[in-house]
Design a protein around this nucleic acid. Sequence first.
DNA 1: TTTCACTTTAGAATTATTATAAACTAGATT
DNA 2: AATCTAGTTTATAATAATTCTAAAGTGAAA
Lengths: 135, 135
Amino acid sequence: MKKIDILKKLRSSRLRPTKQRVEIAKFLFERDKTFHFTVESLNKLLIKKSTSRIALATVYNTVHAFKAAGHLSEVEVRGNKTYFDTNVSNHHHFYDSETAELIDIDANDIIIQKIPKAPNGKKIKNVEVFINLKN
Amino acid sequence: MKKIDILKKLRSSRLRPTKQRVEIAKFLFERDKTFHFTVESLNKLLIKKSTSRIALATVYNTVHAFKAAGHLSEVEVRGNKTYFDTNVSNHHHFYDSETAELIDIDANDIIIQKIPKAPNGKKIKNVEVFINLKN
DNA sequence: TTTCACTTTAGAATTATTATAAACTAGATT
DNA sequence: AATCTAGTTTATAATAATTCTAAAGTGAAA
Ligand SMILES: [Mn+2]
Ligand SMILES: [Mn+2]
Ligand SMILES: [Zn+2]
Ligand SMILES: [Zn+2]
């Protein structure tokens, strides 16, 4: 991914490509593999990586803006912190509680044979499978 | 369920049956259906139900003690609060985000046909399926 | 009964997140 | 290019959930 794509991505979401957003977007999206993170962990990595300091509030703002624009998804993980995911497609996760690490599972790698029907007038929006690992 | 069962349950878990624990245990476990709750929601219900006031810290302490003893499980739900569950068997959930309500799905009502193998030297501890509902 | 480890409690502390409001800036308008 | 302004960043305060602290209370063993 190149800078022009980042700018397109921001502009197409009606997000002004500010210095901070471009830096965070490059950090998040210019990579090949899925990246799972909390705002805290992202903030630490940004401090290490970059010279200019981005306010923590800006990291929160930006991550939420990217999520609202559909560039990030949220993953439920045990614990008090909110996890985000650069993989916004429908997929599942392994979770290694030893390392607190999430690992993607492609949607096609899990096939559910039997599933109960949704209750009274409700429909199924999506199905998330979360596989806890042990040693 | 009767009071004697509650006392047994507490004693067998090496938890002294204090007034507060017995009251909370009766409230949680003397019911037919699964009960899903947060500490905040439980606390509110306890205040309504009972005359004696139990300190919020005690509700936290007690819920954690019950969880450690295996009498409660924790459920991951989107949001910042921790959800607990009186159903400690292996099972799954529907989640209705409109009402913020969890609905149990029996483990036998979901059959997974294909599942990826666990990564490098890890094993699968358990599989949680979370089905989000919409209208 | 006496004793004491366990428990409860009010309040302080901590952690994650959101709100506030003043200073700044991308990009449109002149 | 200079001006303008809505959107953005930032430091800081506020809020919300949870945990910690340490003093007072209590179940139950002896
Ligand atoms: Mn969580
Ligand atoms: Mn949660
Ligand atoms: Zn993922
Ligand atoms: Zn349940």
